[in-house]
Design a protein around this nucleic acid. Structure first.
Length: 274
DNA sequence: CGGACAACCTGGCGGC
DNA sequence: TGCCGCCAGGTTGTCC
């Protein structure tokens, strides 16, 4: 659900609302939402710190404070939004945490499934250290991508989902990228020709960039910080389209199980030939 | 290295 | 209408 494009959209919406604001208080309604440190330590340490920046690393939202990083992972159903402290919203039904800001507003974290996690750390690398490169970074080149593919025997779908291989791709955009590249989800990574690897490199970036352009995919839970839906789901080639005609060839889209994930592809446009 | 699978959780939906 | 059971998927951890 929230993958790189959704998280990027959240960060872009949040940034102007939180940058420069000083955190004056905190309340946590579901203890496990706080990954670390524990609630008393978290509250004491974050109070008085000013939010200097709001950025994204993979699927993590990273807010630089005076002395720490406030990090949020939305997992499947998390939402972040800024609102007047006395206002209520539909998403408050699943409110797990809120931070009081110095302008009378609150930064709220809502999460029906309680998978989302919030971190406070002075060492960002303890959270993001094992992540692979950002696929949309200017310095992530085709040569880098090919070097990372070399020697990997896994299927392409499993590899794209591996955050240590490339950071930020989830189930939706993995399927979209593989369709755009015309490559089967189970194709062995080390079997790609140079041309195929180049197609995949471009397809991953195109799928993610299109997702950002359409402000993320609101399949069910994801919302932008202002509560509205993204439009990316209206532009999918394969995800969630099982049984419907392929936009390229008209054959019905298939759905199979790969790496324990629902996987959508076109048998005709993404031939197996392993 | 990698594959399989459970765990974490709840709402939504199809089936009966 | 209501109940049951399954499905959704990001990440970690465990086992083979």
């Amino acid at each position: 659900m929230p993958e790189l494009p959704e998280v990027e959209t959240v960060v872009r919406g949040l940034r102007p609302l939180v940058r420069g604001r000083t955190i004056t208080g905190m309340a946590c309604a579901w203890a496990r939402t706080l990954h670390s440190p524990d609630a008393p330590t978290f509250a004491a340490r974050i109070a008085g710190q000013t939010i200097q920046a709001g950025d994204r690393r993979a699927k993590y939202i990273v807010m630089a404070l005076d002395h720490d990083f406030l990090v949020v992972h939305l997992k499947m159903t998390g939402r972040l939004y800024v609102t007047a402290a006395d206002a209520t919203h539909d998403a408050d039904r699943w409110l797990r945490l809120h931070l009081d800001l110095d302008n009378g507003q609150q930064l709220r974290f809502s999460d029906p499934r309680k998978f989302g996690r919030v971190y406070l750390t002075s060492e960002l690398a303890t959270i993001t250290g094992a992540l692979g490169p950002e696929p949309l970074a200017d310095d992530f080149t085709l040569a880098d991508f090919m070097a990372r593919l070399a020697g990997r025997t896994r299927g392409l779908k499993a590899l794209l989902l591996d955050q240590g291989f490339i950071a930020g791709v989830g189930n939706i955009y993995a399927d979209e990228a593989l369709f755009r590249a015309g490559l089967h989800p189970l194709r062995r990574a080390d079997s790609l020709t140079t041309d195929e690897a180049a197609r995949l490199y471009l397809a991953v970036r195109a799928a993610l960039n299109d997702g950002i352009t359409h402000e993320g995919a609101s399949i069910n839970w994801y919302r932008k910080p202002d509560g509205t839906r993204g439009e990316s789901q209206n532009h999918f080639f394969v995800y969630g389209r099982d049984g419907q005609p392929c936009h390229n060839c008209g054959q019905p889209i298939d759905k199979i199980r790969v790496a324990q994930r629902g996987t959508h592809f076109c048998r005709n446009c993404q031939p197996e030939h392993l």
